[in-house]
Design a binder for these strands. Structure first.
Length: 889
RNA sequence: GCCCGAGUGGUGGAAUGGUAGACACGACGGAUUCAAAAUCCGUUGCCGCAAGGCGUGCCGGUUCAAGUCCGGCCUCGGGUACCA
């Protein structure tokens, strides 16, 4: 009997697809278009299982949509700028461009064997001047439209290497290479005015019906619309020009509980004070230590410095509050100053306790509750509480009611106004790095910042210093050190001027690539008729880690491109449907060195030893040494070795399950091994089969083996059917076809709803049915061909092979998706479980159309029900037709 | 710290508020084989001989009925604006 030989099958069908150019996307009037896009990869050099999972899911959708009569666009590109290329150049010489292009070549070669339905003619790389030149054109249009501006912003500064560090390059507050304590420093940088769109970016989330609710919620929280009160405290003993401190609060109802005012170390008043006061300067310097991340700032120890300045409480001018500089107050949000109400805010409570400030409640859980609080009292804003120091109105009200009342009261009394603020900050795009898209502007002493002329685009990244290579091992941006690249005439006045050396954040590159795919070679960023036809992306698929930043920036870019005429109004929200997949994880195998530090081992170097339900992991090298592998060793000896690892765990291998695959932890599984051992269809089938796509999946070798066995089984069934007697009658044709139609229905539903794992379970079940079937040739042939079609989005090569084996015309990629016959889906009799008091006691077989009354009668007469009731009279009988009976006693 | 998720047998997981554990792995038993691999058939949540009882991270609630809904926790994961 011939065997399933994926290597040969897969090469043959990939060639067939390529020869007939089946995946090339061309505009067409006769079919509805469908644009499916997976988040494009960073070219790290090796594809990993996460890529395989991501692109296989997209491929299933693309192939399914093709089969259901759509004109499908399914492109692929490379998110090719970014830090890792520069890090590689820094670590081992070489050039970021060479490293990146080599990686693209390698990864493409690794992706090709997966048999993805990609239109490779649209391939793009963001590091190619053909792409980033158009991005520069977009930037200039945005600049002209007032969507870009410059301002100061803080960066991580390494005082030893004298460079800006990315957050990732800051480890425990220190520079990753120098080990120096990082400082926060201000630089003038370019910004996109994303905050102007806050209201729309928030409101439009409502219309994204096919986005995961959790992503919309995360984005909404990130944009962070809040209503609050902005008002000013009058100061006492403050320097000139600071007779007022503006604060913003979302809890004006707690104003009467204010016990201090806090200002950011970057607040103008704090900066003024530090000029003349060494203690303030020292404190502010302390606050500026450490990285810029919100996480670092929020989890740092809360520090305050009493400036000696006082402010008057607006409703009790005899009540003076101290003004502290506090390290947890961000200049970027609100006014950079707050009032602290320790009674109703955990952070303020901690601060007040530390600096011995009063804790004054404004509301309590009840009228007679003790006003002395042992901890901050922070109920939900919707809970009714008793206001012992409230503003107008009832004393019993919810926080939300009280906030509205407080704003109204303050406005009436001339203390500030109610304002709406957003948490969303403008998007800083300047990067002081080489491997990115140059910002196309020139700095002229006379004209200031001047945009480069469009005819001079692209502003290309210089490959080297002119005659010598860049030295990437020197910290800092090599563009700053180029002898001539910066020297250009001013585009406005022609005098000698300096080119901007900052490059763009790589998030800019990934914010419009979906639009570029509609016309990837055009000499404008987009082409109107192509964009109008192909946009929007009908299904976008990618990792949940992009839920906020990438997706928000891409939504902003669609709006900015609409404003500047590069995208139609209909592309305002560019992604109609979004699916966020989980990560592929893998166990980490580690032993410890003498200092207890982990040593990471490759999965291939580790062996799992099992006996019964117990198991232990050991290093193969160690097993070798102990004679475990010697041929004459019996099972008892092997078990004794295995158990010895349990007794001496220090030599056994520790297992950390479900860790994100990471090169440094040696737990990355190379999909190429799976493909070369079992074929692409097995790899594809496996990554789809076990876990729901939105959840993380742990890669295990045994699962791949099972997937391969299954595909072999299907192939063997196909082979067997081919040998059958064409004329002989069989038994159970009807049952087989019924099962087939149910499977069509279930698999279609599964694919439509991203329930790939459930769809595959149904395919397993149907395969078992077919394998055992004694039906005649005709029915079995119909069943195997339908099975091939249903599997074709997941295992396209095998499907094509079965199709051809059964003598079908043409390619299965061109075959229309099977339709379930509704009449075949209904059952005549059904099984109904009977519960007594919610516990299942029996089940009965009844005709599907039996009335409630008859079902109830049957249920009550059931021997097990009678026994359980033990003579008690049932109080109520609930019959849910077609589902269940519950007898309440 | 803050925002968002997830938690179900030995394992991955299934289950429009309606029989918890589909499907698969592993394990065990059997067929086939000189033997093995491969393949095929069967058993398999836990406790119990059985009857039965217990079971979806923990505590509480709503409901005739809760893995699913609500409240409070715990643990793990993602994001936290310069990783992509």
């Amino acid at each position: 009997m011939p065997r399933y030989t994926p290597a040969e099958i897969e090469a043959r069908w990939q060639q067939a697809w390529e020869e007939s150019d089946v995946f090339k996307a061309v505009r067409s009037a006769d079919k509805p278009k469908y644009y499916v896009l997976e988040m494009f990869p960073y070219p790290s050099g090796r594809i990993h299982m996460g890529h395989v999972r991501n692109y296989t899911m997209g491929d299933v959708i693309a192939r399914y949509k093709m089969a259901t009569g759509h004109n499908v666009l399914h492109p692929m590109g490379w998110d090719a700028f970014g830090m890792p290329a520069e890090n590689a150049a820094m670590a081992s010489g070489g050039h970021p461009a060479d490293w990146t292009y080599n990686n693209i070549r390698d990864m493409k070669a690794q992706m090709k064997p997966l048999g993805l339905s990609i239109d490779w003619s649209r391939e793009l790389a963001t590091c190619h001047p053909g792409y980033y030149g158009q991005q520069q054109a977009l930037f200039l249009d945005f600049l002209e439209a007032g969507l870009v501006y410059r301002k100061n912003a803080v960066v991580n500064w390494d005082p030893v290497d004298m460079t800006v560090l990315a957050n990732e390059q800051v480890e425990n507050g220190r520079g990753w290479r120098s080990g120096a304590l990082v400082e926060r420093r201000e630089l003038t940088q370019w910004f996109f005015k994303i905050s102007d769109q806050s209201e729309d970016l928030l409101a439009a989330l409502d219309g994204l019906d096919n986005w995961p609710a959790k992503v919309k919620l995360m984005q909404a929280n990130w944009i962070g619309k809040s209503r609050g009160l902005q008002f000013a405290f009058s100061t006492v003993d403050a320097p000139d020009g600071h007779d007022k401190i503006e604060v913003y609060t979302t809890r004006p109802d707690t104003l009467l509980g204010a016990s201090f005012v806090g200002i950011s170390p970057d607040h103008p008043l704090a900066k003024l004070l530090e000029r003349d006061n060494d203690d303030v300067a020292a404190f502010n310097a302390e606050c500026r230590k450490g990285g810029t991340t919100e996480e670092a700032i929020e989890t740092a120890e809360k520090l305050g410095f009493d400036t000696g300045i006082r402010v008057r409480h607006p409703f009790d001018t005899s009540h003076e509050l101290p003004v502290y500089i506090a390290n947890f107050i961000l200049m970027d949000y609100g006014t950079g100053a707050i009032f602290g109400c320790p009674a109703h805010d955990e952070r303020d409570f901690e601060f007040a306790t530390k600096y011995e400030l009063p804790i004054i409640s404004t509301y309590l859980p009840s009228e007679d509750a003790d006003e002395t609080l042992a901890e901050a009292y922070v109920p939900a804003k919707t809970d009714k509480v008793f206001y012992n120091r409230g503003f107008a109105g009832d004393q019993w009200q919810t926080g939300n009611e009280a906030i509205d009342a407080a704003i109204a009261f303050c406005e009436e009394n001339g203390v500030g106004q109610g304002v709406t603020k957003f948490r969303l900050r403008d998007w800083g795009l300047s990067r002081q790095r080489y491997w990115g898209c140059p910002i196309p502007v020139v700095h002229c002493d006379d004209c200031g910042v001047v945009p480069e002329k469009k005819e001079n685009l692209p502003v290309e990244l210089p490959y080297d210093n002119g005659n010598a290579p860049f030295d990437f091992s020197v910290p800092g941006n090599p563009l700053e050190r180029h002898p001539t690249w910066r020297d250009v005439p001013c585009p406005a006045c022609g005098k000698p001027a300096k080119r901007e050396t900052d490059t763009m954040d790589t998030f800019v590159d990934s914010s419009w690539y979906y639009a570029r795919f509609t016309a990837p070679r055009a000499d404008t960023p987009t082409v109107a008729e192509e964009a109008a036809y192909w946009m929007n992306v009908d299904q976008y698929i990618g990792g949940i880690e992009h839920a906020i930043l990438h997706l928000l920036y891409a939504r902003f870019f669609a709006r900015a491109m609409e404003i500047t005429g590069h995208l139609p109004k209909s592309a305002h929200e560019p992604f109609d449907a979004l699916f966020t997949q989980g990560m592929v994880t893998h166990a980490i195998y580690q032993t410890r060195d003498d200092n207890g530090r982990p040593i990471y081992h490759y999965p291939n170097d580790v062996e799992k030893l099992s006996w019964g339900d117990d198991s232990v992991y050991a290093l193969k090298a160690d097993l070798e040494q102990k004679g475990y592998y010697k041929e004459d060793q019996d099972e008892a000896f092997r078990n004794s070795i295995a158990k010895s690892y349990v007794n001496f765990p220090e030599v056994a291998v520790e297992v950390v399950p479900s860790a994100k695959m990471s090169k440094s932890k040696n737990n990355v599984v190379d999909p190429l091994n799976i493909i070369s051992n079992y074929g692409a269809d097995t790899a594809r089938w496996f990554v789809l089969s076990d876990s729901p796509p939105e959840r993380d999946v742990e890669w295990t070798a045994s699962g791949a083996e099972a997937a391969f066995k299954h595909l072999s089984r299907v192939w063997n069934i196909c082979d067997r059917i081919g040998e059958m007697d064409r004329e002989a009658a069989g038994q159970g044709d009807e049952d087989l076809l019924k099962a087939m139609h149910k499977t069509i229905h279930d698999v279609t539903m599964g694919v439509e709803s991203f329930g790939f794992n459930a769809a595959i379970a149904k395919l397993y079940a149907f395969t078992a049915t077919l394998q055992k079937s004694k039906a005649g040739y005709k029915a079995q042939r119909e069943a195997i061909m339908t099975l091939a079609q249903l599997m074709s989005p997941m295992t396209p090569h095998l499907a094509e092979d079965i199709w051809a084996h059964q003598g079908a015309e043409g390619l299965i990629v061109h075959a229309p998706w099977p339709k379930a016959d509704e009449a075949m889906l209904v059952d005549d009799t059904i099984t109904m479980p009977i519960q007594v008091n919610g516990k299942r006691r029996a089940e009965i077989q009844v005709p599907a159309d039996m009335t409630k009354e008859e079902v109830e009668k049957l249920a009550l007469a059931h021997e097990a029900v009678v026994r359980t009731l033990a003579g008690a009279e049932p109080k109520k009988v609930i019959v849910v037709p077609g589902k269940i009976v519950n007898v309440v006693a």
